[in-house]
Design a protein around this nucleic acid. Sequence first.
DNA 1: ACTACATATTGACAAATTTGAATATATAGT
DNA 2: ACTATATATTCAAATTTGTCAATATGTAGT
Lengths: 96, 96
Amino acid sequence: MQNEYTEYAKVFKAFCDETRLMVLSLLQSGEKCACVLLEKVNVGQPTLSHHMKILVESGIVSARKDGKWTHYSLNESGCEKAKELLKLITDSREDD
Amino acid sequence: MQNEYTEYAKVFKAFCDETRLMVLSLLQSGEKCACVLLEKVNVGQPTLSHHMKILVESGIVSARKDGKWTHYSLNESGCEKAKELLKLITDSREDD
DNA sequence: ACTACATATTGACAAATTTGAATATATAGT
DNA sequence: ACTATATATTCAAATTTGTCAATATGTAGT
């Protein structure tokens, strides 16, 4: 298989790991530096970096570089798209 | 780790496989028998059975047995909970 | 240039997930 | 009881994902 659903699945994969969910939860109160996230989340630095890459590539999170630091924040439109996608997949339809 | 997020992640795992998304899409137009799903989805019978188990256990899909057949349908309240969960995780909050 | 620090990448391994072959269970018709 | 059919389960192989140690890259201060 290799279809539209592969693409959809990618978005939801952002949400199916507990570390990523924890990161998202932390970002709900606003932009956070990677070093702050690292303190709160129970994984090593390379692992966090890996998760952040997945979150950014799925469009759920935005990254902003500022000197040595990388600041992450929720990407409003990406989050909105995820919600719409979930509706698209779970709302009953009359057609067929 | 073993916290609330582990539980949340489980719900989203229902949505992060393309076969399961395809099944959900098929169920949007109403209840379907496993044999019908099997015709449309590109996996073997044991694999479909495995995916259906995940969908049912996550609360997104309901199963109804009728003689030899198992009919699956979207579980409205489960889908609603998933949507609320996604909001809970992605909506910005003032607090902290 | 050198050092310190923040983050990313690579490579290897462990754990989890997806898959199908073989088999089991359950139901219905004869 | 026997047969056919629908679905579930078991088990093992293949694939994907999460993790960390080591290393690389990039930035800022001296």
